[in-house]
Amino acid sequence: MSEPIVKLEQVSFSYPAVEGRPHTALKDVTLEVEEGSFVAVLGHNGCGKSTLAKHMNAILLPLGGKVWVAGMDTADESRWLDVHRTVGMVFQNPDNQIVANVVEEDVAFAPENLGVPSPEIRRRVDEALEIVGMSKYARHAPHRLSGGQKQRVAIAGVIAMQPRCIVMDEPTAMLDPVGREEVLKTIRRLNREQHTTVVLITHHMDEAAMADRLVVMDHGEVIADGTPRTVFQKVELLRSVGLTVPDTVELLYELRQAGLDLPLDALSVEECAQAICGCLRSN
């Protein structure tokens, strides 16, 4: 198998304590992200998701363990620029990641920093805006756009850098349902059509269910890792760390508790309905 794009080896990290003991944010996290995959990271507030994300492109350096990005040790300062350009990052608040007053100028920011020649920047900007469906707004001022549009501009800004992997830290947390749907569609397309590796940090079950792989965190540790189907079957475990499961799984779980013989691995409403119908028929 090819080398993983991001590899964490027993990473631990704690923030410097303001008062009292230092706060441990990551404990012995070992994780490999395969090139081209779509990984969701799930966990409740303060469990260390953002800290994990910041380790994936050398914004934070592990206090214990190692992080490798495309074979580069993130502790090696001379490789930081390469690490940044390999793993792009999208944050929660689009307002705080947009640098320029014009959409296309903002999207051009990363390639400009990389010293890409002007005609090539033009090409990349147009392509990135096309991918996120914002070509029409190239000459607009970002502060006049809706939240979902701003976040798509921010994503285009990272795409234009042509990273191999994009880590998104709750990119939909500040958006309304419409904006959220736009952004999720963009993310899915990015992974399916552009074959960009995506790490999506979220605390929405339905967003996590879109991924190929689901990593669940609690108190700085990875407590479950697998396909969404298998992970969501661990209903008790998820509930014990304060997470809910998708409604369909919840329903099947409750029916099972009531004594019905049902599988738990139905994520879509159709699958769930079929499972229940099948069960009723066989009774």
């Binding site: 620029l81 051009a108 920011f109 400009e112």
Partner: peptide, 15 residues
Amino acid sequence: MECRCYHGGEGRTRL
């Protein structure tokens, strides 16, 4: 900005 490879004006090109 750091995540988008900003490292000062050196070697910067423009759109």
